[in-house]
Nucleic acid binder design. Structure first.
Length: 788
RNA sequence: GCGCCAGUGGCGGAAUGGUAGACGCGCUGGUCUUAGGAACCAGUGGGCAACCGUGGGGGUUCGAGUCCCUCCUGGCGCACCA
């Protein structure tokens, strides 16, 4: 049986039109897929649509259409565009996440997750995007702003559904090491996001028997230097000592500080006992304490923490040095000998940490603690165009997650989208229902699932998109993981982390044997293009710009135009080129060549007119080559063709597709230089076969016209004897500097070649009357003569 | 601030520690033309030369673009993570 290869490109959001970024992404995948098919592998290469999401709702309002109609017609159009690209895709595996046939099985998975304790509901302080009127996951908040709207995110308490991704924090972290074929960069980003840190949780007793305060620290060795406690404004202790009005006032005060990192604090009227010393230390509410990390509370050790130091200076709190260092180095956060700490004096950091944790363990005042930055994944979205969450609520506020037999919960078509917010909430005829089990009046959950849930398992559904359950475990075990997953780096955390979590959760629920969904990840670079502006800072499309005497001006008006840097193609900067136009002008093969030729696929590619034109010239040249009158090849040609096959294969496998293009130029440069127009059917067929993954249209049509064949046979097997030249050019160095290059046979004898070398004038002159002390002979590679 | 990655001709980029600049673009000169978004030929790192050249400085090595240390510059990510 032939080995399977699952090659997948990230499926697109059906925004209406494909853009050059898609083209590059899908061409890279297509080259791989076509190569593996020629190799005889059982290739899975599906395509689908990430079809739920907010743009559909916005477009619906703007164009007075329906999200579903808008989405489906976009899919239709984009599918046509993709087909025009003639990609070798398994269209029979196609899925769209907004189809009932997809999301009803997602509802099953939700029930599975719930039953496994991995989906739960809680009141939570959430990120509220006031523009989109919906909750955002932590991952979707960037610099305190919504990832799509850029609006300042508000904090709100709402009852929300969560997936317990934190259960898998440790495994998600350690398994990164198994992902040898992922870019280090992505792994580092995920590692930072998971944010594991080891330390201790310490109990601080609040004075006057008013309870305890838990504090997480990575530096329990500095506990003797603690001179204050600081808690976040959202810490529960705050509401015990202050009324809502004053809390609100403090929040406003903190808000005013805003993005600059000034530290301010409000002293509470209570104190904490130091866990080791007979003294009380003050408690502050401080703006720099994060409420979503650790316990939302810290102990301040100004001697050995920069932030605490700054705070202590501002509020005249004592600074106690407990790690040996120069006073001028304070605050000193490094390692060192512990001082001024009765139990720990003289110890180094690690030993001190061990000892103090032991001590706390014994007296019950603390313990070792591993803390993760990652939070559970909030999946509720207050939106219409998403997968309904299969839950109903009763009048008493209790809820029930539906049985699988009660599915699907279909999204109603007939809704009003005019007003802001969630259309499902206003759709009473849908929302109100009768619970079939209890016969009681019930209300459907009106939140829908984050669309990142949709994309967390689509690669599994592709295995069988018609199955009447989410997937077949046997098939999953056989066909997953995805062998090559190709897409943009922008998904380094969100989509890729969620998918990894889903795979692990489903593995545990269904007893699957797959730990990771994507064996190899390849992140392709973006496409950039020069930008042009008028003096009024108006963006101008590149095709409107003409150059005369090194002056840029606008074609129609003659306005002076300034050329800007090459930036990521975007509609707002007007520096996009439309795939349809390019395909019409240059054809599929030239477009494919350009997508991979000018820079390595993982780096950015600058769009240039010269680039696409020279790609077209190459395809023309190949066509011309094969139209010439034939003549005979010789052994050397055979060797060069063999080398070509070998290089192309190596370069496809390592995603060095730019080098594949160089290989194509090299072989045709050689053949034309020697005026060899291949007579040998075998050799020209070999060349055409190797061209097929990259230039499918041209190579197929040549295959047909030259050999009357409709398809290619297998990828050529390489004859290694032909690969290595018997004659080689051997560089000769003296003292490590290149002097000359001699031609010799492979496997020469050292003595013999030296005899010949010493005869050369260049060498004799260099050696002069110096003594040769050593000869470095790296067989078939280089000879280095060392003189005294 | 922390972390990661990268600095090679005019430009994009090649080089398992072993001939730096493959291949392409651009440029220069030429050829051919029913004049093209051609095609073909020659050349193209610097320097008159010996030689010098992979961001700067040091090191390891017979030999460094490649490995180590250090600094500089640029990009990306994270960012008060206790």
């Amino acid at each position: 049986m032939s080995p399977k290869k699952y090659i997948l490109e990230m499926f697109p959001y059906p925004s209406g039109n494909i853009h050059m970024g898609h083209v590059r992404n899908y061409v890279i995948g297509d080259v791989c897929a076509r190569y593996h098919k020629l190799k005889g592998d059982d290739v899975i290469h599906p395509m689908g649509w990430d079809a739920f999401g907010l743009p559909a709702e916005n477009a619906a309002i703007q164009y007075k259409t329906h999200p579903q109609d808008w989405t489906l017609s976009n899919i239709e159009n984009m599918k046509k565009q993709l087909q025009k690209l003639n990609l070798d895709l398994d269209w029979d595996r196609e899925i769209a996440t907004c189809n009932e046939n997809y999301y009803r099985y997602q509802q099953e998975l939700f029930i599975d997750l719930f039953n496994a304790g991995l989906a739960y509901k809680k009141d939570a302080l959430v990120n509220w995007d006031p523009v989109d009127q919906t909750v955002l996951a932590n991952e979707q908040v960037i610099d305190g702003k919504g990832w799509r709207t850029g609006a300042k995110v508000e904090k709100k308490i709402l009852s929300q559904w969560f997936f317990k991704i934190t259960n898998y924090a440790e495994e998600l972290l350690t398994d990164l090491d198994k992902l040898e074929l992922w870019p280090e960069k992505v792994k580092t980003m995920q590692k930072n996001w998971i944010g594991k840190s080891t330390g201790a949780e310490i109990k601080f007793e609040i004075s006057n028997n008013m309870g305890f305060l838990n504090i997480f620290t990575t530096r329990p060795d500095t506990i003797y230097g603690a001179t204050f406690i600081a808690v976040s404004i959202n810490h529960k202790i705050v509401s015990e000592f202050l009324n809502e009005k004053s809390i609100k006032k403090i929040k406003q005060e903190f808000d005013q500080v805003g993005d600059d990192k000034d530290k301010i604090g409000i002293k509470l009227n209570i104190t904490c006992k130091h866990p080791l010393l007979d003294k009380n230390i003050p408690i502050y509410i401080a703006n720099f304490v994060l409420d979503n990390y650790g316990e939302g509370a810290i102990f301040g050790c100004p001697g050995h923490d920069e932030r605490d130091f700054e705070f202590a200076k501002k509020y005249s709190l004592p600074v106690i040095k407990v790690i040996e260092c120069d006073d001028k180095d304070l605050p000193y956060a490094g390692d060192g000998k512990v001082i001024n700490s009765p139990l720990l004096n003289g110890l180094k950091k690690d030993d001190a940490i061990k000892k103090i944790i032991n001590h706390f363990n014994e007296n019950g005042k603390g313990k070792e603690k591993i803390n993760y930055k990652i939070r559970d994944w909030g999946v509720s979205r207050q939106r219409y165009w998403g997968c309904p969450i299969p839950v109903i609520y009763y009048e008493d506020g209790s809820y029930r997650v539906l049985d699988k037999s009660e599915l699907p919960v279909l999204l109603p078509y007939d809704v009003s989208l005019e007003s802001k917010g969630n259309a499902l909430l206003n759709k009473d005829s849908w929302r109100e229902t009768l619970c079939p089990k209890t016969k009681k009046i019930a209300f459907r959950e009106t939140d829908t699932l984050d669309t990142f849930v949709d994309s967390s398992w689509y690669y599994i559904r592709f295995l069988d998109n018609k199955l009447e359950k989410p997937f077949d475990p046997k098939q999953v075990n056989k066909l997953l993981p995805v062998d090559k997953y190709i897409g943009g780096i922008e998904h380094a955390i969100l989509h890729l982390l969620y998918s990894r979590f889903f795979m692990k959760a489903l593995r545990d629920i269904y007893g699957l044997k797959v730990d990771e969904p994507f064996k190899q990840l390849f992140t392709q670079g973006m496409i950039t293009h020069k930008t042009y502006k008028t003096s009024k800072n108006e963006w101008v499309m590149p095709k409107e710009v003409v150059i005369k005497n090194k002056q840029f001006s606008r074609l129609k008006t003659g306005e002076v135009i300034e050329e800007g840097p090459s930036e990521k193609m975007s509609k707002s900067k007007k520096n996009v080129v439309e795939p349809d136009e390019i395909l019409d002008n240059y054809g599929i093969d030239a477009t494919r060549i350009f997508m991979i030729s000018d820079s390595p696929p993982e780096r950015e590619l600058e769009w240039t007119d010269e680039g696409i034109q020279s790609s077209k010239n190459l395809t023309n040249r190949i066509e011309r080559y094969f139209s010439k009158k034939l003549n005979e090849a010789d052994d050397e040609v055979e060797k060069k063709v063999e080398k070509f096959v070998f290089e192309i294969e190596k370069n496809i496998l390592s995603f060095s597709l730019n080098k594949c293009v160089a290989d194509i130029y090299t072989i045709f440069n050689y053949l034309e230089k020697r005026d060899i127009y291949l007579y040998d059917d075998k050799l020209s067929e070999k060349i055409l076969t190797c061209l097929f993954p990259i230039l499918p249209k041209l190579s197929s049509s040549l295959n047909k016209s030259l050999f009357k064949k409709n398809s290619f046979k297998n990828w050529p097997t390489i004859n290694e004897d032909l690969l290595f030249e018997s004659k080689i050019k051997l560089p000769i160095q003296i003292q490590g500097k290149l002097i000359t290059v001699v031609e010799t046979k492979k496997g020469y004898s050292e003595d013999e070649i030296l005899k010949n070398i010493y005869k050369l004038d260049k060498i004799r002159n260099k050696i002069g009357n110096k003594e040769v002390t050593k000869i470095i002979n790296v067989q078939n590679k280089i000879i280095n003569i060392i003189l005294n």
